[in-house]
Design a protein around this nucleic acid. Structure first.
Lengths: 175, 175
DNA sequence: ATGTGCATGTAACTGGTTACATGATTCG
DNA sequence: CGAATCATGTAACCAGTTACATGCACAT
């Protein structure tokens, strides 16, 4: 089980577990998902990498390139792998935002199958529950014909439906 | 135009523009959307309300209830309404996360129709663009048969499709 | 020439979280 | 009888943003 807000440190650690990358690589990858979860700034990215390095959870390979600042490719150490398992394995919160959920999905390769499944099931439960209350909210507002937040609720429902459909499929594939 | 990350202060101001509420009310409402955007803590909610009060952008009506701590219902002042328009009207970023987008949707009643439309169009452009790069990403990974982040990309595509469909509909209704 | 992308980093700040404190009421 | 919900608030802390600094390569 594993669904707490993920700190950028743990997130990076997980990403590097999947494949060695430079800070810039990480940024580029995350930017391609920014419309979903936003992407962290260099001001948090680089210091996080440095911290991981100091704790010896990752190593760098400095690839010099004539003139230009050298590329620094980070890889996870054994200790790093362990640390990630520990950090991602401690679950407390049952209420998770879409952003956090997506972050876990991105790290899914570094998660055990059981953990991933638990994560999906939990999300399913949460979205199902709130979909219902959303539906009630919409009906209530129609009666008041006050239109307030109608758009947001409607959007929420559309996304909820899509997510539940995807979850069903994903869990089937996994089983 | 209006799509920057919204601070909790501005967000609350916008919510109160739609209808007077107490701090707890705000929290409850936001909690019902927490699976989408997460909900702020009391530790940020109450101080924000207090700040708005001090700047006279809102007023309180204290409703005492025997014994219990009194309910405090906040309403926006004229100055508050103006301030909200100003703050939500300054656009700089073109790259917005789903969370920010939903926050604008929640405030859609307090936005001008033109602003709302611009917001939807911008989101459409952004999601369309990144959907394409997502598709490329998926194909590329299948070739490598490395499965890395496959889940996240697949999820992203599903959500993107749903969102675009919703956006089409929403814009039609608006026109 | 001017700007955008590549590539790395630091320092100052601040927005928001965590944890605490308080207390009545209702539900199981 | 304990737990959860209602309802408000404060203080300490820190994770992350903003803004800055540097510099080459490539396209318009």
């Amino acid at each position: 089980m594993a669904r707490n807000p993920i700190s950028i440190r743990t997130f990076i650690l997980g990403l590097l577990t999947q494949q060695p990358m430079s800070g810039y690589d990480i940024k580029r990858f995350l930017k391609s998902l920014s419309w979903l979860i936003g992407s962290p700034s260099f001001g948090s990215l680089y210091p996080a990498l440095r911290a991981l390095l100091e704790e010896e959870l990752v190593t760098v390979e400095v690839v010099p390139r004539e003139g230009k600042p050298p590329r620094k490719i980070y890889s996870v150490t054994e200790a790093g792998k362990q640390a990630f398992v520990e950090q991602s394995g401690q679950s407390t919160t049952s209420d998770v935002s879409l952003k956090t959920f997506v972050m876990y999905l991105i790290l899914s390769d570094s998660l055990s199958r059981a953990e991933l499944l638990a994560c999906l099931r939990q999300r399913q439960a949460q979205v199902t529950a709130q979909q219902e209350s959303l539906q009630k909210g919409l009906v209530a507002q129609e009666e008041e014909q006050q239109g307030g937040q109608q758009m947001a609720l409607d959007y929420g429902l559309a996304i909820a439906r899509a997510e539940l459909a995807w979850l069903d499929q994903a869990m089937e594939r996994l089983a």
